[in-house]
Nucleic acid binder design. Sequence first.
DNA 1: CGCACTCTT
Length: 769
Amino acid sequence: MADASKFKAEKRASADADPTDASRKKSKKDSAEKYNPYLAHMYDGANGNGDEPSPNSPFAGVTRRRSTAVQAEKIEDLDTNPFTGETHSQKYFQILEKRRDLPVHKQRQEFLDKYHDTQILVFVGETGSGKTTQIPQYVVYDELPHLTGKLVACTQPRRVAAMSVAQRVADEMDVRLGEEVGYSIRFEDKTGPKTMLKYMTDGMLLREAMHDHEMSRYSCIILDEAHERTLATDILMALLKQISMRRSDLKIIIMSATLDAEKFQRYFNDAPLLAVPGRTHPVEIFFTPEPERDYVEAAIRTVLQIHATEDEGDILLFLTGEDEIEDACRKISLEADELIREVDSGPLVVYPLYGTLPPHQQQRIFDKAPGPVRKGGRPGRKCIVSTNIAETSLTIDGIVYVVDPGFSKQKIYNPRIRVESLLVSPISKASAQQRAGRAGRTRPGKCFRLYTEKAYKKELIEQTYPEILRSNLANTVLELKKLGVEDLVHFDLMDPPAPETMMRALEELNYLACLDDDGELTTLGAMASEFPLDPALAVMLISSPEFYCSNEILSITALLSVPQIFMRPANNRKRADEMKAHFSHPDGDHLTLLNAYHAFKGQMTSNPDGGKQWCHEHFLSLRHLSSADNVRSQLKRIMETHGLELVSTPFEDKNYYTNIRRALLAGFFMQVAMKESSGKLYRTVKDDQAVLIHPSTVLRTEFDWVVYNEFVLTSKQYIRTCTGVRPEWLLEIAPMYYDLDSFEQPDMKRSLARAAEKKRRKEAMKSTR
DNA sequence: CGCACTCTT
């Protein structure tokens, strides 16, 4: 904020121009000759900090970081907005009344006292306490960011949360979103020069820190939902712990749901704690007496039993994935229809809920439960069958019954074979409590756990393992290097990952030439860290101009960063495969993606309104293609700022596709597999895993060598999104990695040696000519 | 012959 002082002067001028400011009137007389808003800059620094409010501002008498709840409430009660100088709307006072009714309001002074006494505060508030909306406002009224020019930031793990909370708080403070209160998420920065309070995703703050290691724009940083332990939150905590030692003026608040408070306190050198009760209703918990063999079958049975015997109220069932959910929905619907006939029950509407469901279908879960089938009949209810999305991201009011089989799909990382995979695993106690809590949002509820009490106590872990322990850390390590963290081994993370995971990440970055042999960031590495991509993708993109196809690699990179664009609905698989064949390129799936994207762009240029129809006919996802387009322009901007050229090989040139296939190897030379002499099996380079090419592939010609985008571990080990390559390219493009002397797998070594020999002969012939 | 739990830069 370069023009902070100008901003301050304007602010004071507007506050001064307002005659209704009661707190100012008293002091006006003696300050009239002393205070001139146009000379405001001269009065800055009365206390040496440049942050003392002027005598006739609404904040007169308020000392920064010494304010009281009474002072703040008086200012909130004024007719005029202390930040904009505008008269408050009717709505403002209506909302203010509701805000004063929130549990957290009673402890405003207690919060301020603790906040004043410490640099780092742990704040625990259950759902419904109002912490996410109120605490940042309490901080604003104490930090006076409009006078200091330093912002208050509040992070959220999810974009939608950052956006919706910012909107809510802008309404509460009676300001326009994007002015005094704003938000910052990927693809959208809704903040301005006047912004004092900024909601943002945790990943966004981490990105900012890469260019401002001291986080000097902020006077207070609030990490919300810290108990979720996202990768970004964990790194921010370690970073802030470090920065707090250098910047004594920076205040930090860690906000969390109850469970792990002590762990946060201990981590932040026994930081003080403030706890605020939530506003929830009691939930009665039932366990099964015996373990269930088939949790899906048991879940369906339980839902139907609730419907037949329990009082009015909606049901939420947690299952693990799309297919399981769709299947269960069908079965429940069928059985519920029978219940109407057999026991005269009310109607039951069943809704599936999972992340990849189109938004308009997700919206249906908020529909009202159906009424009775006939006059005087029993009332209907709705049943939502959901993944974990209903545990954290989405809250549905009106849920009275929760059915919890105790499982969810979780990401697991195996550093030995460098594979991230999804596995159905038992949930943690914390998750189980969170799930149960969903039954008590509007009135007392019941939670049916499909496991025994003994299993809950003895077998469930306390907390879900934080993401940092379940991920490939190549990207994280690169970010940390860029963040200026020199000593990774002693970087004080709350839960340090396994040394092997760290080693794997360092090794991978070294092969990609992002880190040198001493572990120092290279020029390439520094540039790669600027892209919101995994290192292999970033390196491929940066190298692509050398292969005369950066335009095409840019498109492919974007397409690989979004969910699958080819749709394959269960009832129309054959037709979908036929349509995909239109785009297929015999040499590989990457090229097929590119063809589909080019066809899409062509369509959108000639007839943008027909895009939806066209995508539907071709079984392509318009949503994911548009999002790839969005990612593409963001990446393009970053390329341009780094002087990376956007070039193409002419389409008529016979090397058009060859150049692209070669460029893929510049980033993905470590993700290559070679066909075994017998059969369909491939083996991955170095890790030596037996794999099959995923059946979704377009590859028909049999390539001895393929480069692949991902390793998927499901019923079998698959490599997905594959393109054929030639062994001599491997030797040329990644000679360090394909060093024949250190190569162990004999078949591969032989094939590579033959390629090397062939290449030598060719070159010899050229030179003798 | 196929299986995207949720997010994010």
